Simulated assay, not measured.
Amino acid sequence: MNIFIEVVLPVLLVFFIGFLVQKWKKIDIKPVSTVAIYVMMPCLVLRTFYTAEIDIQYVYMVVFSALLLFAMIVINKMYVMIRRYPPKVEDGLILSTAFMNSGNYGAPIILFAYGTAGFDFAVSFMVLQSIIMNFFGVYYAARGGAGIALAIRAVFKMPATYAVIVALLMKATPVGIPENLFMTVDIIAEATIPTVMIILGMQLALIKWGNFDWEKVSFGVIARLFASPAIAYAITLMLPLDPLLAKVLIVSAAMPSAATIVMYAVQFDSEPKLVSSITLITTLISVVTLTVLLMILG
């Protein structure tokens, strides 16, 4: 119960504030999320990569992400083949189960659970997942040659991608980032996590409840909240990971479906109702599953 009160509940309350504000004022989320994506998130990423000690653990993080994504895609393909669903359903299920909300849900949970050291790992993993989601997410939302072209463009449109490059370049130079400039980055970075948490609450308020395909939703819940962290745990046993990083990766893999992926499903008409319903239900159930997982991991 302490884990829920000290780690999960504070995060949920911020989401709930965003949810209530959206229901009350019906705010246009796009301008707010644009500021978060193009100004705030790059500052957080720049600060994290500039101050972090980059070592072999980050290579293991990339390997972990690739293996987890591959495993989740295989599970979805097997389920679709057994149930004989059309390719569009496969795309929708992959979108809602292979990509987790490691940013505006996972990062704050890990910050409360494991402190700033774990948070630095979480932000690095969030950037990696954003790149994967922008590439493979767009690809599965818009299959075919156009999907690949859109996916490549999506990755290079990500400000966080360039923030990583700038941080590593400045880290390699003897001069580095001037202190006053870094202070500006630091101030904006501090506001990023609460802002994206409120945005998630606002996004959840827009998802319509009702007429769910419960068979597919149930599969999505099992795949995202149970199969994904189980596979993540197995992968961490195979890699020589730092114990803290291993916990961060397992907890991140147990996050609900990424809210951002709903936009791709809507934009490319890739089972948007199914994707949004799995996103909503996994977010609600994750309150329990994450609390239990954090108790198990310690």
Rank of each mutant, 00 (worst) to 15 (best):
V217K: 05
K23M: 09
P229T: 14
I188T: 02
A113V: 05
Y105N: 11
Y60S: 06
V138T: 10
A265K: 06
V292W: 11
T260S: 14
I110Q: 00
K23T: 12
I235N: 06
K247N: 03
K30N: 07
G176W: 11
T173A: 14
I235R: 12
M202G: 00
A146T: 11
M61L: 08
F112E: 03
E6D: 09
V39R: 01
V266I: 15
F49Q: 05
I56D: 06
P229K: 15
F49W: 12
I193W: 00
L239Q: 07
I235L: 07
L95F: 05
I3W: 04
F70R: 01
M197T: 02
W214G: 12
G103Q: 12
L280D: 04
V248N: 02
A234L: 15
T260E: 04
S124D: 03
K25L: 10
F70T: 02
V288N: 08
K171R: 02
L150A: 05
V262N: 13
V123R: 09
A149T: 11
V32W: 03
V63Q: 06
I109P: 01
W209A: 08
L93I: 11
I152H: 07
G115P: 09
V63D: 09
K77A: 13
K273T: 08
A52G: 13
R47N: 10
D242G: 06
P86V: 12
G145E: 12
K30P: 00
G106M: 13
E90L: 15
M158Y: 14
